[in-house]
Simulated scan of single mutants.
Amino acid sequence: MKKLLIPFMLLLVLIISACSNSPKEKKQVASKETKSETITYLSENGPVEVPAHPKRVVLLSGFTGNVIDLGVNVVGVDVWSKNNPTFAKELKDVAEVSDENLEKIIELEPDLIIGLSNIKNLEKLKQIAPTVTYTWGKVDYLTQHLEIGKLLNKENEAQKRIDDFKTQAEETGKEIKAKVGEDATVSVIESYGKDLYVFGDNWARGTEILYQAMHLKMPEKVKEMALKSGYYTLSAEVLPEYAGDYVILSKYSDADTSFQQTDTYKNIPAVKNNHVYEMNGQGASFSDPITLDKQLAFFKKSFLEK
């Protein structure tokens, strides 16, 4: 009887041992799976381990349209993105957050945070989720989209989007030049609050499309004062000096537009020739693919369908 019990007891010990080791083995497998679900993104501040397929992204910047365009779920955005009419549908149920409201960001349980390099509480944000920041203007608008594509593990999709946009913009630019002339100049002016601004070739408001993609010409005065800095503040009195043959006027709904009632403004050649095309200022300060598509359609209609 004792001889029969010994093999039985040994078998029982092996079963118990196997069961006790199972969770550990599962944990090791899970750990390997988790590791394989991350990628290393080479950010401007060094390598960052981020989710290979992020599902809950918080944006503390103006890159919202880039992320939406690549089909990645957004759970929190900055106030400028939230109030951008271009993204009204996509962000309807998305929370508004800021770099100072860490508790709200924690509640959203993000697996990735994207922001500008000057955001506050960066080290604390890194403790909540992998955080990647970009310096505004360090790379051009198309390279920026490609970088975000790399970050989200969607580089191929981002590159295709860039190639398609460049083709459309170049074709539209050729059509516009054929109509307005090779030497026609275009100014991009914005009315915001009580101030007027004129922009260079890389400050959103469609400047990248007009000057970089379409190669339309900038007035010499604009080139002198705004090309290097990106923008220049104007007074209504000197506006005629900066107005090109065509003017894109970005207007915010609450801006002071009394300058448009002055003789100085009314006597600008572009105004007299009905060559001023007014664009909604809300949302114009973005340069993501969704915004670029919207602005490209606006330029095509303004220059070619009149």
Score class of each variant (00 low, 15 high):
residue 6 I to D: 13
residue 95 A to Y: 12
residue 252 Y to D: 05
residue 63 F to A: 11
residue 149 G to M: 05
residue 181 G to R: 03
residue 118 N to F: 07
residue 88 A to F: 07
residue 26 K to F: 12
residue 259 F to K: 04
residue 33 E to Q: 13
residue 186 V to A: 00
residue 23 P to W: 13
residue 89 K to Q: 04
residue 66 N to A: 11
residue 31 S to E: 15
residue 258 S to I: 03
residue 272 K to G: 07
residue 86 T to E: 07
residue 187 S to E: 05
residue 132 V to Q: 13
residue 262 T to A: 01
residue 297 A to R: 13
residue 50 V to E: 06
residue 225 M to D: 08
residue 6 I to A: 14
residue 146 L to A: 08
residue 150 K to R: 07
residue 116 L to H: 15
residue 140 D to Q: 08
residue 108 L to M: 11
residue 225 M to I: 09
residue 116 L to A: 14
residue 194 K to Q: 08
residue 38 T to Q: 08
residue 10 L to T: 12
residue 219 P to Y: 14
residue 180 V to G: 07
residue 190 E to T: 03
residue 84 N to E: 11
residue 225 M to C: 09
residue 89 K to W: 12
residue 305 E to L: 06
residue 200 G to S: 10
residue 24 K to T: 14
residue 294 K to P: 03
residue 266 K to C: 10
residue 217 K to A: 09
residue 254 D to T: 00
residue 179 K to F: 02
residue 236 A to Y: 14
residue 205 R to S: 10
residue 66 N to R: 04
residue 262 T to W: 13
residue 219 P to M: 14
residue 258 S to T: 02
residue 228 K to D: 15
residue 112 L to W: 01
residue 294 K to F: 02
residue 259 F to D: 02
residue 32 K to S: 10
residue 2 K to T: 14
residue 219 P to E: 12
residue 49 E to Y: 04
residue 222 V to P: 00
residue 210 L to K: 04
residue 197 Y to R: 04
residue 108 L to F: 04
residue 152 L to F: 12
residue 88 A to W: 05
residue 185 T to Q: 02
residue 82 K to F: 06
residue 273 N to S: 03
residue 53 H to G: 14
residue 293 D to A: 07
residue 104 K to A: 12
residue 9 M to C: 15
